[in-house]
Nucleic acid binder design. Structure first.
Length: 343
DNA sequence: AAAATTTGACCGGT
DNA sequence: ACCGGTCAAATTTT
């Protein structure tokens, strides 16, 4: 909790993040040539970036403020490489003068929209259970829209200072389609997200009170489930590189049992980078994985690509990582081909 | 009792 | 003044 964290704790956390990032960078440099898969390299890059971002956020920096001093990285971005994320606004705003002003800050945060088709039968999934815990904090009738818009924020806003929010609005054209607009990225550590991404738990957790939502918007919360070992393989680290990763993450094990999941995901995801998709970082992974449930819920995740790039390193409820991860903007737009940059 | 949702009021931007 | 977004008290659900 941000509030409860005093200056000393904060400083320690920042230092720990920076040290961690440095260590990862050095490790990457050391093993750069021996890492065989681009996914593994991507994995390291994401972790490094996440460490920096975490440190910045602990200093009350809005990561988006940094956008203007990273032209080189921006050049690598390919904001429109996503299929269905409408880049109606990103971090172009540079109004970062007042960090405490909620409204102004909102403007600076990254924002992307996903369209999710959901089968009304099951009620859930779709825009709903994206693996994160959301709390509804408002609903508004929107001018010109047939359905109200629901406003949700991360359940861990208070406990962990996570500022991620999302809006859900039923499409005027097709009531089965929900437009989900995400703002900000999770800086929290959500066990439930991991659980949700592990096989078919989300369906079981599905509540059935959707009818009570006038907009049919969302099933906000999912009960945290016991953590499953979706560990390393699901981060995209190739088996041949596991020893390298283990070198720097000695505390964690890499069960082979998760290989099945990986394959399952990859089957669906096709050409998408498994590293990004399964890095279990954000909503992206949700869509990727939830789509594995499409047999049941018939959810249509139309924004897979965007996800994979968008949130590659947002919060990362991965157990082996002792500090939650979040990403900054360039990270989210990291091109899939990016690995070639390092080759 | 605690957590989540509902809903009208409030705020800032346009 | 209007509108979208957020707050927060009241209410409902767990």
């Amino acid at each position: 909790m941000e509030k409860a964290m005093d200056l000393e704790q904060r400083t320690l956390t920042v230092v720990a993040e920076l040290i961690q990032g440095k260590g990862l960078a050095e490790h990457l440099r050391k093993h750069f040539n021996s890492i065989s898969s681009p996914e593994t390299r991507q994995f390291f890059v994401e972790k490094i970036l996440s460490s920096y971002d975490k440190a910045l956020s602990m200093l009350n920096w809005d990561a988006s403020c940094v956008v203007e001093i990273k032209p080189a990285i921006s050049a690598l971005e390919s904001p429109h490489c996503y299929a269905n994320i409408s880049p109606r606004s990103d971090v172009s705003d540079q109004d970062c003068k007042d960090h405490r002003d909620v409204y102004k800050k909102r403007k600076t945060e990254s924002r992307w929209t996903e369209q999710v088709k959901i089968c009304s039968g099951t009620g859930l999934e779709g825009p709903l259970g994206d693996g994160y815990s959301w709390r509804k904090y408002g609903q508004k009738d929107i001018l010109g829209a047939n359905f109200p818009r629901g406003y949700y924020r991360c359940t861990h806003r208070n406990s962990q200072g996570c500022l991620a929010t999302k809006q859900i609005q039923k499409s005027d054209q097709d009531p089965k389609i929900y437009e989900v607009t995400y703002r900000g990225r999770h800086t929290c550590f959500q066990a439930s997200h991991l659980a949700a991404t592990s096989s078919s738990t989300s369906l079981k957790n599905a509540k059935t009170k959707q009818d009570s939502y006038s907009c049919g918007a969302e099933q906000p919360e999912q009960k945290p489930k016991p953590l499953n070992d979706l560990s390393f393989n699901s981060t995209g680290v190739k088996s041949q590189d596991l020893d390298i990763v283990e070198d720097i993450f000695p505390l964690f094990s890499f069960p082979d049992s998760s290989t099945g999941n990986e394959n399952e995901e990859n089957d669906f995801l096709g050409s998408l980078s498994p590293a990004l998709i399964s890095s279990s970082t954000s909503d992206s992974s949700y869509f990727a994985l939830s789509s594995c449930h499409m047999n049941n819920s018939e959810i249509e995740a139309r924004t897979l690509e965007s996800d994979s790039t968008q949130n590659s390193a947002s919060n990362s409820p991965i157990r082996y990582w002792d500090i939650s991860l979040d990403d900054i903007d360039f990270d989210t737009n990291f091109p899939l081909e990016n690995s070639s940059v390092f080759a």
